[in-house]
Amino acid sequence: MNIIVCAKEVVDVSEIKTDPKTNKPILQGIDKKISDIDKNAVEEGVRIKEKLGGKVTVLSVGPSEAREYIKELLAMGADEAKIIPYADTGDYNVVSTILAGAINNLGYDIILCGEASIDLFSGQTGPRLAQKLGIPQITYAKKLEPKEDTITADRDLGDKKVTMESSYPVLISVTKEINEPRLPSLMQILGAANKPIEVIAHSSLVSEETSVLERIDIKGVSMERKNIIYKDDIDDAIGKLVENLAKDGVLG
């Protein structure tokens, strides 16, 4: 089974603060990591390999210094990695075009992606990639049952649950609930140093980078307290509170 997992380096969004004056996120000095859900995808890839045999290749479009983070995925059990340096990973159309270009040069049975990256959370790269490759896709998988010729996936669609089956090749995006990514042991971390990481220039993969995303601004969500205290009679107070919440559109 040839398994490709797409993984993205992101800033650790839990550490981001916004500049109080401009309301823009301060990205300097923020730790980076592999997007959490992409780690779930790697874990699932390694589990499929453990069950059916084969090879797991990590593919990452992002800054080339991501080696340190990519090595973590190799320590988890991926066999090799290919990094395609590209500075602006925010445009899902460009990223999926680059990924498709790289994947076309590789053999594959399953492509695994996280349902979305934790930084921009567009959730579009996976589906666009499947469309560009012209292969079936299953999104939001929370359980996979891989067999020799087909794979079954339980999908969580919020209000309903669906089970789907596909032949290979197929692209599957996974949710965070699908598994608990393993922690590599010290020996596996040391072993990862010997696994190959190839750097591929993006210019060799796409002739025309069609950016579809126009970025107007990135701002933090400001949460200011109104500090209104309702002191009157309790029934009156509840009435006023509900009225004000409704006015603010907080109540449906």
Partner: peptide, 14 residues
Amino acid sequence: TDNQKMIRNMVRDF
């Protein structure tokens, strides 16, 4: 080193 950073991240997570 890369290894030391990976070890730190792994132990921190653990």
